[in-house]
Design a protein around this nucleic acid. Sequence first.
DNA 1: AACGTCACG
DNA 2: ACGTACGTGACGTTG
Length: 879
Amino acid sequence: MSKAVLIDGLSILNRAFYGVPDLTNSEGLHTNGIYGFLNIMLKILDEEQPNYVAVAFDVSAPTFRHKMFEEYKGTRKAMPEELRQQVPVMKEVLEAMDIKILEKEGYEADDILGTLGRRFEEIGAEVSIISGDRDLLQLATDKIKIRIPKTKMTGTEIEDYYSKDVEEKYQVTPSEFIDLKALMGDASDNIPGVPGIGEKTATKIIVAYKNIETAHEHASEIKPKKASQNLVDYWEQAKMSKVLATIDTQCPVEFDPGAMVFKDMYTSKAYLLFKRLEFKNIIARFDKDALPKEERLSPAVLLKSVEEFEQAVKEDLEGQKSRGEQAVAGIYYHPQKPEGLCVSLASRPEPYFAPAEQFDCQKLADILKNEGYLVGVMDVKETLSWLKLDKDGVFDTSIGAYLLNPLKDSYGYDDVARDYLGMTLPSEKDIFGKTSHETVFLEQQERFMEFVGWSGAVARRGVSVLTQALENAKMDKLYSEIELPLAFVLRSMEDYGIRVEKEELKAYGDALVSRIHELEENIYDLAGERFNINSPKQLGVILFEKMRLPYGKKTKTGYSTSAEVLEKLRSEDPIVNFILEYRQLTKLKSTYADGLEGYIREDCRIHGKFHQTITATGRISSTEPNLQNIPIRMELGRLIRKVFVPEDGYVFVDADYSQIELRVLAHMSGDEQLIQAYKEDQDIHKITASQVFHTPLDQVTPLQRRNAKAVNFGIVYGISSFGLSQDLSITRKEAGEYIEKYFQTYPQVKEFLDRMVSDAKEKGYSETMFGRRRPMPELKSSNFMQRSFGERIAMNSPIQGSAADIIKIAMIRVKERLEVLHLKSRLILQVHDELLIEAKAEEIENVTKILREEMENAARLSVPLEVDIHTGKNWYEAK
DNA sequence: AACGTCACG
DNA sequence: ACGTACGTGACGTTG
């Protein structure tokens, strides 16, 4: 017996859209509806294994049934933009999956489903009709099953209705269901029904009389009286409703089962599309060996000799030079364990792979360099760990791709291939899974050669495409003058690392432990039981249920026990103070004392990593460990900085920008008040307080200054009265007044922020002083919250990003000057507005001068850039 | 893997 | 009416 699955496309898409939390791919396309649709469809297809499958859509024009009654057409609720944009993509996906799409001008999806459902039934097939819409229940028979998916917490559950199930649940047969609807109406479908008759009454009437015609004949018998009367008074409307509610099972849609045959959905086209939509779970369903082979890229071939390589390079150069082109090659490396060097040349389809065991890879790379090649490489900073490259001769594809769209979470060769070369390649993870490079190289060399070949080829082909794209976006200078040189600076910072006194760190940790134990005992005593204090869940139960403390906020999963909430409960019970202190100490112990210790290497130094392609704004990030969040605000935490020390004979020189973001704001907005204040080296928070609170400058209280400081921060973050009120524990109204006053004081700041938002809305991205872009898909959202978020980042990103640009410039210049002067001092850390130099004792003065000059002159603003510099024998003292 | 929490700028 | 400040990373718990 054959089986057919027919899907009500828009209805399921709609269900999925509202059932699945918002998802967006890195292009900013909303994908949650499509994702949910696919999950429902795949679940059903897996389960049913049908012979036929098709998806029906409405055509936007008014449908035939509704046309009969002009006044009822076209009043359907507008679709939100986030859903509307998914409809064409959904159809694209279905086409790519080789699933038949059914549309018929003038007919609704219902009619198509009804008609084809009946046809399939007539040829003896079993039919499943999938819809989120109960209207379809009228089609149920003992061969036609209506399936209504429900998105629940536990996953997707499906309610199934054969005709007997309809009768059980609604007390009427499927065909009587039409009459039921004719009486009760359906607002979402523009079916008026009969006023005063709802589901209950309608069911009673239809159970008794089977259809509206008979009911109308016996109208006088019907109770309540209002229903009886209205059935007579609105008889015409009832008849019309019945027509509207009736699904046309005879519509002239072609019945061609051959076109609906269920084939392999996992086509290469579908793979490509899922990659673009970033549906990782669905991609995982593809048979790995059947992944689309990208014919235009060949696997690498083993290099036989250096001579062979030299010969190939010579030929390649002749070719490229004769066309007057810059010679471009692409290389692949492995950052941790170099198993060899892969080189892709323009003149040969197959890249060369030179195993490290047989070849001096550095020598091969030098050949490229000496011949004047521009060498594409995916991640210069990592490559430098074993291959010396010259910044004048390389192009970093991951940095290029990052600048073009900093919102993505990876910039691998597969990402570049997909986004800039229009190719779909399996990712490194697709190929290797959990198997090591080494194992694949030894045991599945063919696969390995594909991988390195693609990597090399994409690195080469990415060079011109990304260069062009960067030029088009006017980010070529940002790339070549800031980002690429910076990669070399970061590399050297990582290589130097920072020295840490292991024993001191251990002692610090031990001191914490004894106090932590004391606190634990106190907490257990007060709570009356032992529990896991680190578990917010358990802690919430103890505090807010057992001890009945008043709870403030709640999170998705329960009570909030955040410091913000506990802070307000300090006076309620002594346990709160103990918990706050416990939290503080365990944080220091686990993340810093224990955490950092694990990173200390043989050389007594921590070599953390700096990442250049992570943040949306252009800042650098730090991991393994994060050296940009070492405690400083609280004294106890700050003490940790004493274990960060320079090498013997060296001292730390630490320089940080004073209020760089506010100065950038002054410059970018051109606000005369603000510029004037900075030119006169005024206390900016105090002056703001004086203006906002109408207080003479010399009478500003510390509290007023603190509040004004919060306002200044708020401005940089993309001010909202709510956010400010939270921060200052004041009402929204008061916060709103502060902001208004602020804008009166600095009117050009207001204009500037408004301009940032409107520009970003128009262009779709924001821009820093140096042309760094941040795309902002959120600004187009119809969701208030998301759009507001978009507006805040439109205000913040240019400021935070410009400050990031400036310190990057300073880093490059500082390092350059240290090198030119052959100083032993070196830049070792960057913390967003701060640089730390491990300086040779004799070089302190020189280093201080260099830091000051290069940082203050990194950019020419209309206000001075001020730098505070301290020296010390550890990081604690140098701040 | 997601969440809550908290460290930094 | 909606319900947040901007940008990160690490840890412990929990499902």
